[in-house]
Structure formats: C-alpha cells, structure tokens
Design a protein around this nucleic acid. Structure first.
Lengths: 202, 202
DNA sequence: TGTACATCAGTGAACGCGCGTTCACTGATGTAC
DNA sequence: TGTACATCAGTGAACGCGCGTTCACTGATGTAC
C-alpha cells in the first residue's frame, strides 16, 4: 500500500504530518488483523513508508502508538453514530441503529478491536465505550418519553445495546447474519416496544 | 501452574497422556489471552512441564495444536449447552439460555476465541458454530409449536442468538452488563414472546 | 530367571526470523548575519 | 545577495529476546530369548 511509493520526506515545519500517516496506517492494520497484539510497530512504519525508528519521533513506544490509534477508532465510531436530531425520536432511533450496524459492517475488524478490551475495574464513566452508551441512553430516554412509556431508560438502553452489539458482532463472523441485519434491527425496535403502535407497557 | 512441578515422565504405553495435557494447557492459555495468536507453542509446552520439542510427538505443528484445542473448546461449549429435555419447552429454553450465559461468564476468554474467527465463505453446515445454532433452532421450533406461534423458527432463533450473544460477549468486557444478565435474559424471552402469556402474534 | 535389545517418551542445542528499542548519524532547509 | 549554521525529518546498524522448527540424542522400560 503506502509503502510501495518511495515517499518524499516532509518539509521542515511539517513533521506532524507523519504522525497522522502513522495513526492512519495503524488503524488500517488494526482493521485488517482484528487484533491489537498482531499489529507491530515495524509493520505500521513500513505501511507509512518509513523506517521503524521514525515512529519514535512521534510516539514514546509501540504502546502509545496503539493506544492513540484505538482512541482514533473510538472517535470514528462515535462520529459515525452522530446522526442528526430530526425531532422524530422514533426515526432518529432507527437511523442511529442503522448507523451502528453500518459502521460494524464496514469496519468489522475495528469494531471487534473496540470491544475486545478486558473488563477494567473502573467506573462506567472511564470506560472507553461510555460516550457511545450515553448517546444510546439519551436517545432511548427521549423515545420512551415521547411514547409515554415509563420503563427505566437505562435498562432499556442496555437491552438495545446488547442486542445490537450481538447483531453487529455476528454479522462480521457469521455469513447468514449480515443479510438479515436490517430485518433484525426492525424487529428489535418492535420487540422492545420502541416502534409501532404504543403497547400495554407503561 | 503445571510447569511448577518437575513432572514425571509417562510410562511406556502412556504417551497419549501428554497429548491431553498439552490440549488442556492450550485451552487454558486461550482463555487467559482471549486470542489465538497470543498462544505460543513454547508457552503451551512450558505449561505442561515439557520441552517445546515434545509437542511435535503429538501434533504436526503449532497450527494443528491450536486447531485441536479450539475444537476441544467447541466441544466443551456444546456440552455446556446440552441441558436435558424436561418436556416443558418454555422452561428448557430458559435453562439453555442460562447455560449459554453461564458458559460465557465462566470462560469469557474462550467464548471470545470461539467467535473470533473471520467469516469463511463456506456453507452454514461447515461453520464451527453450526451445532450450537442448530440446537437453538430446534429448541425455538419446539417452543413456537407448543405456543401455537406461526413465526419462522429460523428467524426467531437468529433473534435469540444475536441477542444472547451480545449479552454474553459484553458481560465479559463491560462491568455493568454482568449483574444485569439474568434480568436481560428474562426480558429477552418476554420481548420475543417466548415466555409468559401467549400474545397476539400467530 | 537373567540379560540383551528394540521401543518409545522426552531432551537440548542450534537455526533463521521478526520483534521493540537504542544509538550515533545524515542531509536537506529555513534563518541570521 | 551570499553564506554559515542551527534545526529538524528521518536513516541504518546493532542489541537482546522469544518465536517455530530441525536434528541428533538419551535413557528408562517392556519384551524376547
């Protein structure tokens, strides 16, 4: 890929340019290998068309390089999930679900890496996925309020999240799930009484 | 662990004993590292208290050792899912769901490894998880029949599977999901009309 | 019963390789005079 | 305008390490005579 062309050295003030190229290369390799450990500093450098030692001008070590690459992935995921508010909570919820599954379908390796972390014993706020989850809780809260549904938004949000995560994760590894994903998403909203006629639950 | 004690050499006819010990060690390491690539032949040998070369008496190479270790994991998972048929499909379904989540909770690393494979372009029957899925389709079929529910058992089984996989996977990485798992499982059956009063769906 | 020997479980040294990291360096370029 | 120099992007050789795999071997033990 990038390593193929000889790559012209950056001009004097533009040393930061390589930093971005290294991060982009690391993210690409994370997606390809679907794993953090399999991404080597030397491979990232080679993909950016640069010698391994050049990496140390921008990152303290391999660990920092990969930590920042993963942070960049979270950022991309978070941005992919930012669907505009149209004032129709039901439609917005569906759009966000589609955006979630679309990201996981387009970047299955990266999606897997994002959720491959071991459970750290920290508060929910420090979890890397916290902004994503918060976004979901808000959306579900707005939707329940609009529908006059008295269920706990947090619990319902976890129902939505666990289910959509299962669809997202399996569509990347089980061939039958991918084509089913849109139907599964539609039925998810119905089964959880988040779309269609307001039901008995209050 | 095993490597600590000096280990007495197996008697003449019992060369196969080491084979089992190596597989057990490999499975343990797979669970610890939550990844296939991170498990080295040398580490497996050391855990079994044996020199690296001894592995080659039982497996052609590292690849075969790990392939067989993973097959053993599938077998364990499949056996964990074999809950007895009591004649009450509703209760059996709940028991199997609990068994599924219990396995993933007890062996989160192994569960993750089992579902970490890239999607191979083969028929469903050759998928490693095929027996598990087949078991689920059967159970769901029996349950729908008993409840006089005309939905497609295969589709409902995929709804169940994606959701339960999401719960199982996230309980191993997100601290808030674990304690919620039993409640999520109960509500799963209700939301999908697989428990409680038979609803409008036919 | 005693002994020679084939069998068999497992060892240990060695290989080439890719890894992360260090260190001293090169050479183009903007800037000060 | 010309030139010396400091700055800065990036290199290349070298290190110690753990990896998978090979090869020739060791030494205990069951068995045949």
């Amino acid at each position: 890929m990038l390593g193929a062309m000889p790559r012209t050295r950056n001009p004097k003030g533009a040393g930061q340019r390589l930093r971005g190229e290294l991060l982009a290369a690391a993210v690409a390799l994370l997606g390809e290998h679907r794993s953090i450990e399999a991404v080597t500093l030397r491979a990232v450098a080679a993909a950016a068309g640069v010698s391994p030692t050049a990496v140390y001008r921008h990152f303290a070590d391999r660990d920092e390089l990969l930590r920042q690459a993963i942070a960049w992935c979270w950022d991309r995921f978070d941005r992919a999930l930012s669907v505009p508010d149209t004032g129709d909570p039901e439609a917005d919820f569906g759009a966000q679900g589609q955006a979630y599954l679309a990201f996981a379908a387009t970047e299955p390796g990266i999606y897997r890496v994002l959720f491959s972390h071991r459970a750290p014993a920290v508060a929910d706020d420090h979890q890397p996925g916290a902004p994503v989850l918060a976004k979901l809780v808000d959306r579900v809260g707005a939707l329940l309020a609009r529908r006059g549904d008295a269920r706990d938004p947090r619990f319902v949000a976890f129902q939505v999240w666990t289910w959509i995560h299962g669809i997202a994760d399996l569509q990347g590894s089980h061939p039958a799930v991918g084509p089913m994903a849109p139907a599964l998403l539609r039925q998810l909203a119905l089964a959880l009484d988040l779309a269609g006629p307001v039901s008995r639950r209050r």
